[in-house]
Write a protein that binds this DNA or RNA. Structure first.
Lengths: 227, 227
DNA sequence: CCCTGATGTTACCGAATTGTTACCTTGATG
DNA sequence: CATCAAGGTAACAATTCGGTAACATCAGGG
């Protein structure tokens, strides 16, 4: 969770403000008041992300950016600058920066942008929905229960996917038919029951007393994943 | 080199302008005039980057963004919007967007930002991939199994390459056709089966009980390299 | 022009899914 | 308590889907 951020900024007040903000979000913060120090730290401490002012004494931001990339380092670099001429922005991005934020900037937005980059570089453990002892992996098209994979048929999977996407909502039979079977197909209403029954048999602890897929008499069903 | 970009934007003039701009830079451009179409294309054609308007008819940009991420797709998403309140920006970024660009924007800057993301995701360090007793050498375009080289036809290789690049994911037949055969060619869906069958014969320990290339009935296939 | 290998198509088979029908259980209502 | 409607479920049947073999087509090379 904790990432290391390097902030290179020559104005002390701003540097302090940025440092405190990121530190309060739980980041480990390195700071540098000038370009030369910034480049040193970037190379020696390999931070996960760099916030880089452009107008710096001694070595400017563009040069740092290029130097970092030339060394083969690939951490995201966010440029902070008062220059917001389009040419400057394009130049910065082409030199290997990932974002270019014009001063004055909003702190919340800056943090959100930094988070977005850090999120991306973090390894993903496959997004999945969890409910009870089940885990639904949409990308892999798999369902696990207590670690073991459960085989679902196409209809069952589509139905469960629909339930999960509308969890907590009462779902009318019409709506389910429309979403899972498609509005052109004509089937008896019992087809839903049947599919629900097989799905319950596979995911409910006790299919006689369903907790996840609840029946709402006269309406349809509701999927309740619990907490 | 050529990347595929999906642009979701409901204002025809702007959509046209964006399309022309990116097309002239050599990108393959997909367009969608509304959210529902956009989501479909994002899921079925797996573009390398998405430009997403927020205010859209039917399904709004935030929902598309979330739905795409829930499916485990990780292409960069750039949000375009007239809203530039800080809360909106933070919301968008937290939902999995990578950049948030306020209208009116500058075209050159937009292209530069898109390029920056594509440059980053294009980093392909993997020159070889191992699974079971097989080793796929992408650079040399060769497949070895237990040290001996296995001859693959062009289609088989391309298919395996695609499988490897999307390992662990459920791959719809449409998506496979699109990626391996190309979206313009029209072939029967059985051509995929045929190619899968010959590939299985070459890489599976027991082609009758495939472990690497798994069939997902009604959906397509999934490549599972194991550990 | 013919041979060869790759690739696509057609046809058939077997298996699995899925819809239907029929019957049963449950719960609401008067 | 009787009745009725809705949902649960088992058994069966039909359909659909994928695997595969056999054949067709096409391109390239000699």
């Amino acid at each position: 969770m904790s990432a290391r951020i390097l902030i290179v900024e020559d104005e002390p007040a701003l540097l302090r403000g940025l440092k405190d903000t990121f530190a309060s979000k739980g980041y480990e913060v390195l700071t540098a008041p000038d370009g030369a120090t910034g480049l040193d730290l970037a190379l020696s401490r390999s931070p996960d992300l760099i916030l880089l002012d452009i107008m710096l004494p001694r070595v400017n931001g563009y040069e740092i950016c290029r130097a970092v990339r030339e060394r083969g380092l690939e951490m995201p670099i966010l440029m902070l600058t008062a220059k917001d001429r389009e040419e400057d922005i394009i130049l910065g991005l082409n030199l290997g920066a990932d974002d270019y934020i014009a001063k004055p900037f909003r702190l919340g937005e800056l943090v959100a942008r930094a988070n977005a980059f850090l999120r991306r570089s973090r390894t993903k453990p496959a997004a999945a929905f969890r409910f009870g002892d089940c885990e639904l992996d949409l990308a892999a098209h798999k369902l696990f229960r207590g670690g073991a994979e459960i085989e679902l048929t196409a209809k069952e999977f589509k139905l469960l996917e629909y339930f999960v996407s509308r969890r907590g909502c009462a779902l009318a039979r019409d709506a389910i038919l429309d979403a899972v079977w498609g509005n052109s197909v004509i089937v008896t209403p019992r087809s839903i029951d049947r599919c629900v029954a097989t799905l319950r048999a596979k995911i409910e602890p006790d299919p006689r007393e369903p907790v996840y897929i609840q029946t709402i008499r006269d309406i349809g069903y509701r999927f309740e994943p619990g907490e």
